[in-house]
């Protein structure tokens, strides 16, 4: 019994020591990740929403079908989505530099993250909008609602529960992307795990990062689920 207890205490001390050693790095990385993910989620939602509104309006059964516009956006969205994120970061580096003033750093990374995620967001939002009962949309139109009113007063509120779940999916995807952002000095948990955990063989750092990432995913998903239940 005492022997067991001793090894347990020793293990605990080791964990504590490892934690204290990298605490500052870890929190710095966690903050960077949260910052990158939340900013790029918001931005990609904004752009994705605009794209989705155009797609919904011009789509085959939209409020004002326009095959040419719809197909162009549809193709652009598919094209952007088929580029691996790591390639995208490098490919749009000049654009990033132009817009953000620098191509390197956490804030600069928000640009490629947004560009990578906006088409995905557009698809998710389009999907949620398409789920809205066609009859409800028709009813709105039959009372003289304009296209704008139909989208914002009927489709958006009706699609809200599905949208919330999809936003969680989007944020989790961006969490995954953000781990690759280290390449351009984006920092974050993925970067920390790579620099210290992989390159310098500090396995405990990798484990801490993984634990934090798991917690983040859980938090995002359960928030999404909770809001979904509230909104339904």
């Amino acid at each position: 019994m005492p022997a067991n207890s001793n090894t347990f205490m020793a293990a605990l001390q080791a964990v504590q020591a490892s934690y204290l050693a990298i605490r500052d790095d870890l929190f710095q990385a966690l903050w960077e990740t949260v910052y990158m993910v939340s900013a790029s989620t918001v931005f990609s939602l904004v752009f994705g929403f605009l794209l989705a509104v155009v797609m919904i309006t011009t789509g085959p059964h939209g409020l004002r079908p326009n095959a040419r516009v719809y197909r162009s956006i549809d193709m652009a969205v598919n094209l952007l989505r088929s580029l691996p994120f790591i390639i995208l970061i490098i490919a749009i580096m000049p654009l990033t530099r132009l817009v953000m003033g620098t191509g390197i750093g956490t804030t600069a990374t928000i640009m490629p993250l947004t560009i990578a995620a906006a088409p995905f967001a557009a698809r998710l939002i389009e999907g949620s909008f398409l789920e809205v009962d066609k009859g409800v949309v028709e009813a709105a139109r039959s009372f003289g609602a304009s296209r704008w009113q139909t989208i914002f007063m009927v489709m958006l509120p009706e699609a809200m529960p599905a949208l919330v779940l999809n936003i969680a999916v989007l944020a989790i995807t961006l969490l995954g992307y953000s781990a690759m952002a280290g390449t351009v000095g984006g920092g974050g948990l993925g970067d920390l795990a790579y620099r210290l955990g992989y390159n310098r063989f500090q396995t405990d750092v990798t484990i801490w990062c993984i634990l934090l990432l798991i917690v983040l995913v859980q938090v995002i998903q359960s928030t999404g689920n909770f809001l979904y239940k509230r909104l339904r």
């Binding site: 009372f143 304009s146 909104l231």
Partner: peptide
């Protein structure tokens, strides 16, 4: 004109077509 036309014609539906969340 269409907007006014629709104001003057109410419509009801087989599946009611109400906003379920409201």
């Amino acid at each position: 004109g269409i907007k006014t036309l629709r104001r003057d014609m109410g419509m009801i539906f087989q599946n009611f077509n109400l906003m379920a969340r409201k």
